[in-house]
Design a protein around this nucleic acid. Structure first.
Length: 228
DNA sequence: CGGATTTGACCAGCGC
DNA sequence: GCGCTGGTCAAATCCG
């Protein structure tokens, strides 16, 4: 386990919160650790963007996480700590409608529905929709408590920008996956109200595996079988 | 010397 | 149309 990973503290799972940027927001640490488990299970944050093509299974993912990684007793302990199964359900709220809309679009395109085949939508409106869609890919956000800004998620990132955003004290950093043809991006910023909290936002979907091997590979690979 | 980071400039979306 | 803001580009700089 890397020092970066060790710096992370859990914040609870799938606790949806209001975010100004209208995105799916999870308090979901990249490296999930639960005391009732004898080991930690590294969950790559990019698991979440990968769900964009299979949005209805987000709740299933949470359930899979628990069901696949622990004994019956341990599952009960986790569920109890999480406040019951309702916390594992990702609801569609007003705060993430746009992101969900993109997910829906993704699902629609998966079923081979072509935009211009849709009846009742004017070409102008379609153009506007496409213009917005070009900018807004499904995004997924994680909140972790960490001393370091860049969390070790197994992928290699190159920083391409930094910006001070309005009403925040801390700059937002922009990263791009270094892999060729992989257009995944992530943004990293610290929470204004609590600088100890790091907000990591992923956008896009990796077309490759992580760039380096993770430790405790057995549990890792077992879990990955469910997630990738 | 090559790759990564920094940082000011530029661009595009959005609200008024 | 204009100004504000977030996101990206790319030249300069840093660093191993």
């Amino acid at each position: 386990m890397s020092s970066t990973s060790q710096a992370m503290l859990n914040q609870g799972l799938f606790e949806e919160q209001e975010m100004p940027a209208q995105m799916n927001f999870f308090s979901f640490p990249p490296n999930l650790t639960h005391p009732s488990l004898g080991c930690h299970h590294s969950l790559k944050p990019l698991t979440m963007p990968s769900l964009a093509a299979d949005a209805p299974s987000i709740t299933h993912l949470a359930e899979t996480l628990i069901l696949s990684s622990a004994t019956h007793k341990q599952r009960e302990a986790i569920a109890s700590d999480l406040g019951g199964p309702q916390l594992l359900s990702l609801q569609r709220s007003s705060s993430n409608l746009r992101a969900w809309g993109d997910v829906d679009d993704c699902l629609a395109s998966k079923s081979s529905v072509i935009d211009h085949d849709r009846p009742g939508i004017s070409p102008l409106k379609m153009k506007k929709i496409k213009a917005r869609r070009k900018v807004r890919e499904p995004r997924f956000c994680f909140k972790t408590m960490s001393d370091v800004d860049v969390l070790d998620d197994g992928y290699k990132w190159r920083k391409y920008g930094q910006k001070v955003v309005k009403n925040t004290q801390h700059p937002r950093s922009y990263y791009r996956c270094t892999k060729d043809n992989c257009r995944v991006k992530k943004r990293v910023e610290r929470l204004a109200e609590d600088p100890r909290m790091v907000i990591t936002t992923y956008e896009g979907r990796h077309v490759h595996s992580p760039s380096h091997d993770m430790e405790d590979s057995q549990a890792q690979s077992q879990l990955n079988n469910f997630l990738w």
